[in-house]
Design a protein around this nucleic acid. Structure first.
Lengths: 200, 200
DNA sequence: TATAAAGGAATGAACGGTCATTCCGCGAAA
DNA sequence: TTTCGCGGAATGACCGTTCATTCCTTTATA
């Protein structure tokens, strides 16, 4: 039964890979990088320790791959139903609300990203994000536009991002850890408060 | 010369202890906990590896002791010149400005605290801070008062703290890492923005 | 179809390196 | 001479990574 189930699936490789990713995501999110040795990831994923190295070059590679995917998911979520032609406030509230809703539904993703940001990778990543800026993304464009239209305070993008996203992420973490209890009304209030910080 | 200097001081023990603390603070701040092994702390402090254990029970003890002291320094700085009887806005601006000025003058302390917060200690510490709350501190009292007077939005303390302190700390980090350049005028604008987030 | 060999995926014990902590000999102070 | 702080090699635990071996699937053969 076990064996039949195991081998009649055509994509067992992809499944193993997924199991490794999920195990690593959970362990890093819940215990930090210290608490996620490769042997433990392997055990949790139900594979041998060496197997991980068939799918990922090394631990760094695994961690970066997960981060990249999680971050992409964040952007996707914020862009889903994005009111591209609405007023600035509506667009910003959409982004903030979508992000918060997603983060509290996927606590592991939030915790993982936080662990990543506070690690040797983190600084390099932020530097690249602030200075690299080869192709402006939609969110940066929205902020630039709002500054140009004198809707936002005339501050650098990095500062505006901190004012808006910083508290939202902090508050999601507090919700996940059980320190506060977010509901729809409260999310709206908090996003509104972050908007107030940006508004001229 | 070295020896003479070393032993004619009456408080050489306290000096050694200070050297250990300073070395640990610097290494953790600059490299994270991974990059601050006890042997390296000892070398940087100019003492033997075993000597650290004459002053601190173990690494945890050392780290917690440093954290406690750094945090106390933060509170001291915010309370220095605190306009106790001024209007709420003035008091809040004082706190925010004093904190930012101190953080950018003492980048190691900021980086150390951030490392601490993102570690197994961090969550427990925050939980204790939010729920423990045996004796209200002056800052909490200020926020409570502002909510009661309907100057602030009617939100929980944890949320108001995130709205105010979250961005300030983020921005100081960006300054330290060279991503932005804070000056007095900019600090005032940013603190003002955080105030706007709280204001009803 | 039945059997056997080949090929590649998976395994987990073993390796080299690092870490926190211990412990014992040394040398300064009394 | 005795005492005691100190140093740093030694210890044992742990971690990322490797690799010889095993196991499963596919292909070749009769």
């Amino acid at each position: 039964m076990d064996k039949a189930e195991k081998y009649d699936k055509p994509d067992k490789c992809a499944e193993k890979r997924e199991a490794i990713i999920q195990a690593a995501l959970e362990l890093v999110a819940e215990q930090g990088f210290h608490g996620a040795p490769m042997a433990m990831i392997a055990e949790k994923a139900g594979v041998g320790a060496g197997t991980i190295y068939r799918y990922f070059e090394n631990k760094d590679d695994l961690i970066r791959w997960i981060y990249k995917n999680v971050e992409e998911r964040f952007v996707e979520v914020m862009m889903q139903g994005y009111p591209e032609h609405g007023p600035v406030r509506e667009r910003l509230v959409h982004i903030g609300t979508a992000l918060v809703r997603h983060l509290i539904n996927e606590p592991l993703q939030l915790r993982f990203v936080e662990q990543f940001h506070n690690s040797p990778y983190g600084v390099d990543h932020r530097r690249e994000k602030i200075f690299g800026q080869q192709k402006k993304d939609i969110i940066s464009e929205l902020f630039d536009e709002a500054v140009a239209q004198q809707i936002f305070k005339p501050l650098e993008l990095a500062i505006l991002f901190s004012l808006f996203f910083g508290p939202l992420v902090d508050i999601c973490r507090d919700h996940i850890l059980g320190f506060i209890k977010l509901d729809d009304a409260l999310i709206e209030q908090v996003v509104g408060a972050c908007w107030d910080a940006l508004r001229r």
